[in-house]
Design a protein around this nucleic acid. Structure first.
Lengths: 150, 150
DNA sequence: CCTTAACACTTGTATATACAATAAAAGTAC
DNA sequence: GTACTTTTATTGTATATACAAGTGTTAAGG
């Protein structure tokens, strides 16, 4: 849907402003969609993000800074996020032997299983996307957004 | 910068997943930038958004539902957001005569002046964008994101 | 009228988030 | 070794947010 309709706006200052709002709005829109789905699994999208990061590095554990660097939203509080996931048994944390300031955080079997369960659910989301945009178009988006953040 | 570098990620499942994360990440990135700037004016980006919406409709007042429909993040609490802005004297609210359930919300002179002060600041942001992407490229982004949300 | 439903907004509450302050460990310089 | 700095993580606090429940107002049906 056109951004003008979404925001009931008649016009924007120029195409650059429109693009800024469009990217923020669409990002939000995707986020909300994802969050809705994850809620049924009692996960926030940030928590899901952390789990995926840990799976990505598994079996190598990560410490908090590593996770923070890889997170979508750097500002959020990694300590408390990780603690929530630990309480659910989705990851473990232990003090690092060589450097006791650090903690080693690792996804558990249970965490892996949960992600495995979620994979096809998220896959369905991608299929929705596939219907709307060709691979070439998606590549264009990726390329232009990377360029924008240069 | 490439998303892989931003997120210290070596690979994504496919270009579709990469695009999803890219849009969310870039949206966030733009949001954070904006928030930083607005903080100096003691405004959150949501508050700024509401003010711009009111300026857009000025001199016609809007009620809460109107505002909510036009907001980037529909989930947020319009009542309290508007109340914050009222306390700062940036807008007024009065009960609607014809339908006392509604409130009429209008931007004040002070609000207009604040936006006017912010216009060139935000403009600078657009100029940054202009340097990185051509109008044609920006149009492509707009077109593809609109298509994505269809 | 009276009852019930729909509407527009407000409030309560639990949770999340941002940012600063603090703590503890490790590294560095003397 | 002692003082200073940097690294890494945790905690405190104020604010924001999501969602549900509540309030007052209007509309609709009998």
């Amino acid at each position: 849907m056109k951004l003008e309709e979404e925001l009931k706006q008649t016009r924007f200052k120029d195409e650059y402003q429109r693009a800024m709002l469009n990217i923020i709005f669409t990002g939000n829109w995707l986020e909300v969609w994802t969050s809705q789905v994850l809620k049924q699994y009692d996960l926030s999208s940030q928590q899901f993000n952390v789990l995926r990061i840990l799976r990505g590095s598994s079996p190598r554990p990560l410490n908090l800074l590593d996770i923070q660097e890889r997170m979508m939203d750097r500002m959020s509080n990694a300590t408390r996020l990780v603690e929530k996931l630990r309480q659910k048994g989705l990851l473990t944390r232990k003090q690092c032997d060589s450097n006791r300031r650090k903690v080693e955080i690792e996804i558990t079997e249970k965490g892996q299983a949960l992600l495995k369960e979620l994979d096809p659910v998220m896959e369905k989301n991608h299929l929705e996307l596939t219907k709307k945009l060709t691979v070439a178009e998606v590549n264009t988006i990726n390329e232009l957004l990377d360029k924008l953040r240069d």
